[in-house]
Amino acid sequence: MATLILVRHGRTTANAAGILAGRLPGVLLDETGERQATRAAERLAGVPLTAVVTSPQERCRQTAKAVLSAQRDAGRSLRATTDRALAECDYGDWQGRPLKELAREKLWRTVQAQPSAAAFPGGESLVQMQQRAVAAVRRRDAAITDQHGADAVWVAVSHGDVIKSVLADALGLHLDLFQRVHVDPASISVVRYTAERPFVLGTNTHAGDLGWLAPPPRARRRRKAGDAEVGGGAGPEPAGDAG
């Protein structure tokens, strides 16, 4: 199966102000967030992406634009596709409110300790958020694999809780444990799905070239795709050594 790179949007004006932005319009990257998005895009410049898919929220589209710009600089031409299933959690009546105020709500404790029981007034539950996001990335990953082959690499730009829920599913964690997963602004996480199981290749990374995710220059016989290497394996070939 293809390789999925999960990119959280860069820091926003709402993040910096401690506001739960949710799906409010007009929430944009601040200067720090723009720099973060550029750095994330530069890390991906050595990876020939087959697709860039983004949440409809503006902060994600800005981050996706940076990824596309770095791909163009590397001689590749791509357009972003918007997928509403990757949208921010619908926090309903909570969106637009300060986090320090929300922390006094009874529901806050549920979100922290038992997310599977948390439903936001006027919005969706965290279970619903996870179900739509996981279904979307798995469905698109299968379609990209069918179209471009098992060596394809693609990017999904989304939000903190959405990405955490996708990673929790890939790690086999119950949603009630997803708060153990951390996803910072503009961080990059990597998942490879197979018929047997997902493999989580990285979470919440901030630095380092990701060129090792690029497909090999020519096809090589591989072990069965869904098998784990007993003992840990040899890892990816260093850049320039493949072939």
Rank of each mutant, 00 (worst) to 15 (best):
A2I: 02
A2P: 15
R8N: 07
H9M: 07
R11E: 15
T12R: 11
T13I: 07
N15P: 14
A17I: 10
L20D: 15
L20E: 15
L24P: 07
P25T: 10
P25I: 13
P25L: 09
L28W: 05
L28P: 07
L28S: 13
L29M: 09
D30P: 09
T32P: 00
T38M: 10
R39N: 06
R39M: 13
R39P: 00
A40F: 01
A40Y: 07
A41I: 05
A41V: 09
A41N: 07
A41M: 09
E42C: 00
G46L: 10
G46D: 08
P48T: 08
T50L: 01
V52I: 13
T54F: 00
S55M: 02
Q57L: 12
Q57W: 04
R59Q: 04
R61L: 14
T63K: 14
T63I: 09
G75F: 03
L78Y: 12
A80L: 15
T81I: 13
T82L: 13
D83E: 15
A85N: 15
A87F: 11
D90Y: 09
G92P: 04
W94V: 11
Q95C: 03
P98S: 05
L102V: 09
A103M: 07
A103L: 03
A103T: 09
R104M: 11
L107G: 11
L107F: 10
R109Y: 06
T110R: 02
Q114R: 07
A118C: 14
P121H: 08
G122D: 08
E124D: 06
S125V: 02
V127D: 09
Q130T: 00
Q131T: 15
A133I: 04
A133W: 03
V134G: 09
V134T: 14
A136F: 00
D141V: 04
D141W: 03
Q147N: 04
H148A: 14
G149V: 05
A150N: 06
A152E: 01
A152D: 01
W154V: 02
V155G: 07
V155T: 08
H159A: 08
H159K: 10
I163S: 10
S165Q: 08
A168L: 06
D169G: 00
L171D: 01
D176L: 13
L177Y: 13
F178W: 08
Q179H: 14
R180D: 14
V183G: 02
D184P: 05
S189Q: 09
S189H: 10
T194S: 15
E196G: 13
P198D: 02
P198S: 11
F199E: 01
V200S: 00
V200N: 04
V200G: 00
L201D: 08
G202L: 02
T203I: 15
N204K: 05
T205L: 11
H206Q: 11
A207C: 06
G208R: 05
D209L: 02
L210E: 10
L210C: 06
G211R: 01
L213M: 07
A214H: 02
P215M: 03
P217T: 06
R218Y: 03
A219S: 14
A219M: 03
R220K: 13
R222G: 15
R222N: 12
A225L: 12
E229L: 03
A234Y: 14
P236V: 02
P238F: 04
P238Y: 04
A242S: 14
